[in-house]
């Protein structure tokens, strides 16, 4: 652990800055997060600027992602659940996907890194998902939704609470660990072998970036599934 920490401290720069007394913010992460937001917003807005019946250009690409996620949501959440969760799930997927790939782009003018290589971002996203799950649950089922914490019987409450806490934690650590490890390895490879090998690793990391975005999104959909599933039965 000590070695990895040392490596990450040296290789990956989060740019922690104390903007107010006692308030430390990783500025590099925040800049990259903003950049990711701008890219996601640009892609989505570009695709919705002139919405046409017959999709064209980038609208096709975004609609392909949406169709694909919609199919997943239809299978797990049902039609009503999909209508409710679509904006959230699509934004989540695009944000993580773009964020994951951002760190693999060449840093020409600015130093690019993945916002998701920061545990704060990953945890922030997974906490957002956990809270959103409760919000969706309360909208859909009202206070009854909290019953799932004491099911199948009240004695399970501690275990259920533990599960509720561990879910976002594992989601965040999986995402953050994968992306951080990828970037550290990339930086190390560049120092060891400047040619070819890092490029192969970048290709592999691009796939990992997509895969992690998909896993995170899929886990979100699965977390949302019980809310809408009770409706079917």
């Amino acid at each position: 652990m000590g070695v990895a920490e040392a490596a990450s401290t040296e290789i990956i720069h989060y740019g922690p800055t104390e903007i107010m007394p006692g308030v430390v913010i990783n500025m590099q992460t925040i800049y990259m997060s903003w950049l990711t937001m701008v890219i996601v917003a640009a892609i989505v807005f570009a695709s919705t600027r002139h919405v046409e019946k017959i999709p064209h250009g980038i609208q096709n690409l975004v609609e392909m992602f949406i169709e694909w996620l919609n199919k997943l949501m239809d299978a797990n959440l049902g039609i009503e659940g999909r209508r409710m969760a679509t904006p959230f799930v699509i934004t989540l997927f695009l944000y993580i996907f773009v964020g994951n790939e951002l760190g693999l782009m060449p840093s020409i003018v600015v130093h690019l890194s993945s916002p998701t290589n920061d545990v704060n971002v990953a945890l922030g996203l997974s906490i957002t998902v956990a809270v959103a799950t409760y919000i969706f649950g309360c909208i859909k089922q009202g206070p009854k939704y909290f019953k799932h914490l004491i099911s199948p019987f009240a004695l399970m409450l501690p275990l259920n609470l533990l599960e509720e806490l561990s879910k976002p934690l594992t989601m965040a650590l999986r995402l953050f660990g994968n992306i951080l490890a990828g970037e550290i390895l990339l930086a190390v490879l560049y120092q060891l072998v400047p040619f070819i090998i890092p490029n192969v690793w970048i290709g592999f990391s691009l796939i990992i970036g997509f895969l992690q975005a998909f896993i995170f999104t899929m886990l979100t959909i699965i977390a949302l599934a019980p809310i809408f599933k009770q409706d079917h039965e």
Binding site: V24, T29, N120, G124
Partner: peptide
Amino acid sequence: VSINYTLIAQ
């Protein structure tokens, strides 16, 4: 690697 206010900002 530490958790700070970046979490809330994110």
